[in-house]
Design a binder for these strands. Structure first.
Length: 139
DNA sequence: CGGGTTTGACCGGCGC
DNA sequence: GCGCCGGTCAAACCCG
């Protein structure tokens, strides 16, 4: 996996909404030819939140997301912020890990240097993203 | 092995 | 009751 692919994956990850979802079904419905996907919040077993994702009927560049219920916990982004804020306490007891937030920071730095140095980077990245988006769009 | 996705089966509500 | 339809389950499968 090269650097651009990593960055693309990172962007796609950030675009997602900060909660963890587990897909539990997919159906084609009567009114809309494109399939609808069913997700449940998998952060806590007690969390009742579901969401439906379906491509819009009249504009297939648009994806409709329907949320159902309220999360009974913080979003994972909030959890990450909380963890970073209390990092000193955490690292004093446990070993410090270079987990995904750290890797993401490195990626952003890399992206910045590429942007300033490589004139072709923007178009390369755009091409990589659009091809990746096509994969993702097969909801 | 542990978590996710895929995918057909299954279920319950609704109209006839 | 019966069939349709949207929603969910769960076994198989995939992947790191």
């Amino acid at each position: 996996m090269n650097c651009i692919e990593r960055i693309v994956l990172f962007i796609l990850k950030v675009v997602k909404d900060g909660y963890q979802w587990r897909k539990y079904g997919q159906k084609v419905t009567r009114d809309n030819p494109s399939p609808r996907a069913y997700y449940k919040c998998s952060f806590a077993p007690t969390c009742p939140v579901k969401k439906k994702v379906q491509r819009s009927m009249d504009d297939d560049g648009v994806v409709v997301v329907t949320y159902e219920g309220e999360h009974n916990h913080r979003s994972t982004m909030q959890e990450v912020r909380y963890a970073l804020a209390h990092e000193s306490e955490i690292s004093s007891t446990t070993e410090r890990r270079f987990d995904s937030p750290k890797l993401d920071e490195v990626l952003v730095e890399q992206m910045a240097t590429y942007l300033s140095k490589d004139p072709n980077f923007t178009s390369e990245l755009a091409a990589a993203i659009s091809s990746k988006i096509l994969e993702v769009e097969t909801f």
